[in-house]
Simulated assay, not measured.
Amino acid sequence: MPTTSVHTDPETRTMTLVAEFPVPVERLWGAFADPRQLERFWGPPGFPATFTSFDLRPGGRADYRMTSPQGERFLSLWRISEVDEPHRIVFEDLFSTEDGAVDEAMPASETVLSFEPAGEGSRVTVRTSFSSDEDLDRMLEMGMLEGYTQAFGQLDTVLADLRAYALGTGTTTELVDDTHVTITRAFDAPRHLLWRAHTEPELLRRWLLGPDGWEMTVCENDLVVGGSFRNAWAPVGDTAGEAFGFEGENLVIDPERRMVTTERLTGAPFPANVNDLQFDEADGVTLMTLRITYPDQVQRDTVLATGMTDGMEASYARLEREVLTATA
């Protein structure tokens, strides 16, 4: 975790986060000056930001939205007042309406981003000021403090060279808490090919099979928000096992970037989990991140005990071998 401190000061109505990273100041600055990199961490897991405009200069403006796994959209904008590369960015951070106007009913703040050397790396200090106690209290109630910490916890991956950081490590599974699991896998391919491989039935049938000896018998997806999907598999020949399937509903569809769905084992009596699948590309390498929310710890542990990670890695290796190489 790169965050070294995060705290609020009610007397000055400020919130301050300090984080250090083992990269030069110029590299750290670049993550904030490039909207495609900024999108990968400016928002906690499950609420990624999408910048629809980005004019980083005094008097410029940046518009962005954060989208929840349920498809709720939270619109915001920056009014940029100062840019001193690579040392400082100052902007008003405001909520906005669908037509791009400032939402006066929501809290307003000013944020100062300061960048400086720190040992063999660099440090960013994020200082957010509020004009009233009410605005500060409301943002704290909305989880801004935790959101900042979670968001900046993603910046290490953004700053890393994905080829050195993730390629060749296979599928990794992290137990976040009792009901959340994060699965990551890097591919030496652009994300538009990964998106196709996850959404086009003829491609899915070639790789989404788990261990050898299985075939995909059903692959249906109405790829719109509110649309449903259904996949099914069966053993081939003398392979042991029984046919099974999954089904669910599409909650968020952000082409080539994000897909959130519910998922349940067909015919099973237990509740559905929520799968939040995201693709981030840097220099031709795509990092796939799958965040799974389970109804409870028992269901999480039951699913993981099936050997899910090994089965996913077998499928992803097949995806690289038989789809990405042939489709590139």
Rank of each mutant, 00 (worst) to 15 (best):
D161K: 09
D137Q: 15
P201L: 08
T157S: 09
S129R: 15
Y165M: 05
D135F: 00
L140I: 10
W207G: 02
T149M: 03
T184K: 13
D238H: 11
G213Y: 09
V225Q: 12
G153E: 06
S129P: 01
A160R: 05
T172G: 07
G245R: 07
M216K: 08
D133A: 15
T184S: 10
D137W: 04
P235T: 04
R123F: 06
N231A: 02
R163G: 15
D212N: 12
A243I: 12
D177W: 05
P190N: 10
G170R: 00
H198I: 01
E174F: 03
V158Q: 03
G143Y: 00
T199Q: 03
E146K: 07
T173E: 13
L140T: 01
T157K: 14
T179F: 04
F130I: 02
T128Q: 15
T173R: 11
E220H: 13
P201N: 00
F246Y: 15
N221C: 13
T169F: 05
T199L: 06
T172A: 14
R206N: 04
A164E: 15
T239S: 10
E141Q: 15
G147F: 02
E242I: 01
V126R: 03
A164I: 09
L167R: 04
E215G: 12
T172I: 10
V225L: 06
T169L: 11
R205E: 12
D222H: 09
G227R: 10
F246H: 10
T182W: 00
G210L: 08
T173A: 12
G248F: 09
E174H: 08
T149V: 15
A166G: 09
S228T: 14
A234W: 05
R127W: 03
N231F: 15
E120Q: 13
A240Q: 13
G226M: 06
C219P: 07
R205L: 01
T184L: 06
V176C: 05
G248K: 08
M142A: 14
V225T: 12
N231W: 14
C219S: 14
L162K: 11
F130L: 07
G143P: 00
L159P: 07
Q150V: 02
S129V: 10
A240D: 14
W214S: 04
D188I: 03
E247C: 11
Q150M: 12
Y165R: 11
F130R: 01
R191K: 15
E215I: 02
E200I: 08
F152N: 01
A234T: 12
R191I: 01
R191S: 00
V224K: 14
V224D: 10
H192T: 13
D133T: 03
A166K: 06
R163H: 14
T128A: 08
F130P: 00
G170Q: 00
D222F: 04
